[in-house]
Design a protein around this nucleic acid. Structure first.
Lengths: 146, 146
DNA sequence: GTTCAAACATGATGATTATCATCTTTTAAG
DNA sequence: CTTAAAAGATGATAATCATCATGTTTGAAC
């Protein structure tokens, strides 16, 4: 559904939001260990997220990644857009370039509910909400777990 | 959503079903020209579909691809399974290996309607139906069109 | 103002996916 | 039984995506 890049992006963002409490910023090693993602790759992704104002970062000693109250309101759809673009939402399920409402591919209309359902979930879900659920211990972010 | 391989597989199957009328079989060049897909790649895909009993083929002179009445009842989900496997349906949206009902990732439950909606569409749609719609000229299979 | 720990930037490698090429097998027709 | 047209099989190349490595910039602490 999403690229691996996007999966790591979401996991990293949620982890930062669930860990950052306004004090020490979160280091890249901490992040990668806890979401089980490759460090260099994730660092690159976080730079993109930072440029898109989805997370914040600070260089130098005591630097790291963090997230503002404002940024906690980011919706999942914003992350997907920033990383994967609009392909998931607009792209034709059969890969046809000119597929559209007026020139639909054979399954275009049938897929409308799927696309809408996906869009709705991503629109309705904020980083804040997911981070809060993590804190309550209801969910898992690690790839392997215990 | 699907791999390109799977996209070509669906398009090729629908094309064969919309063209085959019980007489001459459909050649690979014909197929590829009309769905705008690379020939060698598509040939390979059709071999897989043939092995999975989704389309039929015959070698030699006057050979080609065709589809039986029985095979026209194939559902899209069968094609997706044959080519991409069950990844789209069971795979975690965040790429977590151990994500499940009991150990859910943060968005596992939220994605349930999306997965179900997707599964429903693929379950409910047969090759026959799509081929008939093509014949009525309602839909397009080519990548670029005229 | 030097040092060191952090993110930032860029390029290189590896893995996976898509595409191409070449040869083999089958089968109808002459 | 030879020929030619078709799919089948296998391996090689290309493109894309994921991952790694190396060096640069920033900024707090001494």
């Amino acid at each position: 559904m999403f690229s691996k890049t996007c999966e790591y992006a979401i996991r990293a963002t949620i982890y930062i939001a669930s860990e950052y409490k306004g004090e020490e910023k979160i280091g890249i090693q901490d992040i990668c260990k806890n979401i089980e993602a490759p460090q260099h790759f994730t660092a690159k992704i976080l730079q993109v997220l930072s440029r898109h104002d989805i997370v914040s970062s600070k260089k130098g000693v005591h630097g790291g990644f963090y997230i503002s109250e404002e940024q906690r309101n980011t919706k999942l759809i914003d992350i997907v857009f920033a990383i994967d673009g609009d392909h998931v939402f607009t792209g034709c399920a059969l890969g046809l370039k000119q597929c559209s409402e007026t020139k639909p591919c054979p399954i275009h209309h049938k897929f409308k509910p799927v696309r809408e359902s996906l869009k709705k979930v991503l629109q309705d879900t904020t980083v804040r909400e997911l981070a809060n659920n993590i804190k309550k211990g209801k969910f898992v972010l690690k790839a392997l777990g215990i």
